[in-house]
Write a protein that binds this DNA or RNA. Structure first.
Lengths: 281, 281
DNA sequence: ATGCCTTACGTTATACGTAATTATT
DNA sequence: AATAATTACGTATAACGTAAGGCAT
């Protein structure tokens, strides 16, 4: 029977020009390669080489065989690659989220519950999240609205509440609460990658000037160093709240978002994992 | 390393549903197949089966693997088929001819000279013959005009002379020779598959009525049984000339065709073979 | 003299089938 | 009981590397 190994060897011979060189490249002995190529010729029923006493040269059939071998081997490599990708996916939990903070919450919980699994997380638009969950690109998604769909489980997760983070000397710092309208005319620091919060920014904050920072560390440094107001939320505060800041809640309805976790039924256990572990907080 | 045999076995398992049935179909023992599939799982790095105590079922990875295996195997089968076709072509001399008689001459000569080769012969149009010779579809062609082309050898072969074959009682039977115009108004028997002779038929025989026969044996029988005139040539007469017939040569220039043999340079020996053997006649 | 291919030879590894084991229908 | 899968075991095949031979550059 035709062996893939023989085809690999044939290609090596074609590449290196001599059996000796190919054998060395393949880490086998010359005689072994000689025999293997003879066998291949038998299997295919054609001589692939023109045999001079001291040299083998690919003949027309040999060149054809090399070409064909390339096709077969790339099909085989494709198979191996796709199977490997699938195997990897079995060891990976892909999380998709519509906002950053819930994602930061979820991924450590998962990796604690599934230490042997690789956890990947990325933000995406709600539509893409839903599609991705159905198609298997994501095993768990965080949405800002419950998802009612056959085969999909959806549970309320956390509520994120927006605050203005102010230096104590700021005029608004003594307020119990503010509305977004109170912030009109302010210059604020803003971290990018807002996810669904982007909508709030686009629609309700036209009267605010923003200094946008895309790097997390630079953003933290900026906040510590400046007296400009910024935003924070009940969730972001868990991860190193900045010093010397007063957080005043924002009362507008849009400043509070309730997040939901959705999984396909066959990954129900992921939900349990998150909720179980969440109680530790 | 991945083995094509494992893929074949996997497909057999998918097809037959159990290892036992597949093993029987493959003419190997169950344990052997079990081990082979375990090995395949190791190579691919994924479990392909859901193992119940008494049964193996393809899981998702297994189904994917079956699909991929199909692709790989058909690539491999494609390779084997193409190599086999090439191997066969090495054992085949394909003759193309623009007329039947020279073809009948050439093929027996070739098969006597090359007893190990398969000789195929077919009629075709001059253009197709030339293309086929260049592309390697034909190794030898018979044309009605010399072919001057680099890389191609062309030699005069035989001349075919057209005769009217008449019953002795026919008015024209006593003539030394005739012109085609003398045949106007006759009803003649004609064998189809004329090749280049077709042109003569189309252009110079509009005044003749023909009874066309497409089977060689039926045609011979017809000739023996009827008193209708027909055509014959110096070449066809070699193969069983009909009894009680007088053959009168046709003087028109178009009633004589000179044929040429053409081969590519690397098949020069074919020419020698034909000419060498031809002298025996 | 060196490089390259092939054949010969002895060893090792691996791949097979039979038999035994366990579990299911 | 009968069917099915896996594991265990002894054997036989076939694949490897080393060694030897032949030929060409």
């Amino acid at each position: 029977m035709l062996e893939l190994e023989q085809l690999t060897q044939l290609m090596a011979v074609a590449e290196h020009g001599t059996l000796s060189a190919a054998a060395e490249a393949l880490h086998i002995s010359q005689p072994s390669l000689t025999r293997s190529m003879q066998k291949l010729e038998n299997v295919l029923g054609v001589a692939l080489f023109e045999r001079k006493k001291n040299r083998v040269l690919l003949n027309e059939a040999g060149l054809l065989a090399v070409e064909e071998a390339g096709k077969v081997l790339s099909a085989a490599e494709g198979m191996e690659a796709r199977m490997a990708a699938y195997a990897r996916s079995l060891r990976t939990i892909a999380v998709g989220s519509c906002a950053p903070a819930p994602m930061w919450e979820v991924t450590p919980l998962l990796s604690r519950q599934y230490p042997e699994m690789t956890i990947t997380a990325e933000m995406n638009e709600p539509d893409k999240l839903e599609d991705g969950l159905v198609s298997g690109t994501y095993q768990l998604i965080v949405t800002d609205a419950p998802l009612e769909k056959p085969g999909i489980l959806c549970q309320e997760y956390v509520t994120e509440q927006l605050y203005v983070s102010l230096p104590p000397a700021h005029p608004l710092a003594k307020r119990e609460a503010v509305h977004l309208s109170d912030l009109a005319g302010q210059t604020m620091l803003l971290f990018s990658e807002l996810g669904v919060w982007q909508r709030l920014h686009d629609e309700k904050m036209q009267d605010i000037r923003f200094i946008v920072q895309t790097e997390r560390k630079a953003f933290s440094d900026l906040i510590s160093a400046s007296v400009l107001p910024s935003f924070t939320t009940n969730l972001t505060q868990r991860y190193g709240a900045p010093m010397n800041r007063v957080n005043v809640p924002i009362l507008d309805q849009e400043a509070t978002i309730r997040f939901y976790l959705c999984v396909s039924e066959k990954h129900r256990s992921l939900l349990d994992a998150v909720y179980t572990d969440n109680t530790h907080h």
